[in-house]
Design a binder for these strands. Sequence first.
DNA 1: ATTATTCATCGTATATTTACGATTAACAAT
DNA 2: ATTGTTAATCGTAAATATACGATGAATAAT
Lengths: 102, 102
Amino acid sequence: MATSKKHIFLDEEIKIAEIAKVLSHPARIAIIRILLKKDCICKEIVEELPLAQSTVSQHLKELKKVDLISGEIEYPKICYRINRTMWQKVQNDLIKLFKSCC
Amino acid sequence: MATSKKHIFLDEEIKIAEIAKVLSHPARIAIIRILLKKDCICKEIVEELPLAQSTVSQHLKELKKVDLISGEIEYPKICYRINRTMWQKVQNDLIKLFKSCC
DNA sequence: ATTATTCATCGTATATTTACGATTAACAAT
DNA sequence: ATTGTTAATCGTAAATATACGATGAATAAT
């Protein structure tokens, strides 16, 4: 048995990993939980978490990058909310992985 | 409204983030999928993935650290398998987070 | 125009992750 | 004892993530 058909990772594997990465920081889980309760502006989140405003903003950016949240501009505020469709999709993707179990 | 009750992250948030972190690399998702199909020794996984043996071993260590897999020694091989109980728990934890949604 | 408010971005320092090759450890078989 | 097989660990380089303060951008209110 010489060697092998080395292949690259599957798209699905990459996508699941991407979503998991977004969920892989307590601050982002905390932000999601806050937003699940109610839509918030960045400042409100900053006041609930022991993090600088710039740091929270960065986490929000990550969440926005994968479309888990969206922000509606009402200058100078930006109202963040969970993207329920995407949130459902995250669940489906993960559950799909789970399903390949038994 | 001066400032606020800054608190640290909740245990639950940390735990979910920890699990998500383990799932946040395509290689580890790939390894899980391989092991969901059948128990494998490290060498078999190395042959299926475009990664060095030491790298796969490191990923296996991560998965083992959170108890998602276990390894049974049959020198010089080690047979890895999914810890179904833990795998179920991961699902429950994530679904619990999802549930706080609607 | 100036001021106040909110948030994003920039620059940067530090820590963590990821990957690899080389080596070591643990045995089985000879 | 030597050899072969498998996997863990070590050392290390490169990339990525995380955090913060400082600054800049966008507007509303004065």
